[in-house]
Simulated assay, not measured.
Amino acid sequence: MADWHAPSAEPPVVQVAGVSKSFGERRVLQDVSLQVPRGRVVGLLGRNGAGKTTLMKSLLGTSTVDSGTVEVFGAAPGPELAHRVGVAMDGIGFYPAATVHKELTIWARALGVPASRIADVIDLVELSGHERQRCARLSTGQKQRLRLATALLVPTVELLMLDEPANGLDPDGIRWVRRFIREMAASGKTVLVSSHQLGEMENTVDDVLLLDRGRIVHSGSLHEFTAGGQFPLEERFFEVVGGMTS
């Protein structure tokens, strides 16, 4: 379990108030309100279909909401977030024929980042020696590291939004991602991470945002949610959202 420490007294990085969103007749988010404190690792948890991806897209401004307000760094999401928010999600693909260096060059140009930054992020995610390897031939773990490198290309990034960063990784890769996330938080960044791997989240996050059927059913510290570690995160998860019924 991640060591507990009190949330920052600074204004939250993300503030969502009364947000609802529907696709046709299907209500995906229902009156969602939450905060993401600065300098914390926040786990966004929930089953498939709980609304996690829609919520993350609303924070990026790539999905509009039907009602309520979304603020990131005190303002509605806009193009300027590209220089303050780094994103690593499965929906962001690579050019298969491109090498690692070429892929990052493409992103650097799009973001207006100097080419000199590429070597920095390659070193940061420990992909040194793979610069000329084609993206299509990278291992699952290497692809996840490349996504993280892309998210960190802009040196002014303050918030990282990660969707299943340890998905498909072996134990060594999972351990590396966990350490990387904690190091980012220790450096002053805020990390919002969505994952189904409850055991791993218990060792990684400071706070828990639990979504169920489009509603926030818990928002607070992991320490509080697990009663100081007396109960496993997985056990508390199912206590709150209930087990699956056939």
Rank of each mutant, 00 (worst) to 15 (best):
A108I: 03
C135V: 12
H101L: 06
L81G: 01
P79V: 01
A110E: 03
W107R: 10
H83E: 02
P77D: 01
R147G: 15
V70D: 00
A98G: 05
A115Y: 02
I92A: 14
G74R: 01
P114H: 02
H130Q: 08
Q133K: 15
A75S: 14
R134Y: 06
W107S: 10
T69H: 12
D123A: 15
R134A: 06
Q133M: 11
A76N: 06
A88V: 06
V100T: 12
A76G: 14
V72H: 06
V125G: 10
L104Y: 10
C135Q: 00
G86M: 04
A108P: 11
L127R: 11
G78Q: 13
Q133I: 04
G141K: 07
T140W: 03
A110Q: 09
D120W: 13
G93V: 08
A115T: 13
T140N: 12
A108T: 02
R145D: 03
A108S: 11
G78S: 15
K102H: 12
T99M: 12
A110D: 03
E71L: 11
H101V: 05
E131T: 03
S128C: 04
V85L: 03
L111C: 07
P77E: 00
I118F: 09
D90H: 15
A75E: 13
I118A: 08
I92Y: 12
G112P: 14
S128F: 03
G93H: 14
G78I: 01
T69L: 02
K143L: 02
V85Y: 00
E71I: 00
Y95D: 10
L146C: 06
V100F: 11
A110G: 09
G112V: 10
G74H: 07
F73G: 04
P96N: 11
V121I: 11
P114W: 08
R84G: 00
D90I: 03
R145T: 01
H130T: 07
T69V: 10
F94S: 08
E80S: 13
I118N: 07
V87Y: 08
E80G: 06
V113Q: 14
C135Y: 04
K102G: 07
L104P: 10
G68L: 08
E80A: 10
V85A: 01
P77I: 00
K143D: 02
R84A: 09
I122H: 04
G68D: 02
R132Q: 14
T99K: 14
C135T: 15
R137V: 01
V70T: 04
Q144H: 13
V121M: 06
A88I: 05
L146P: 05
A115N: 05
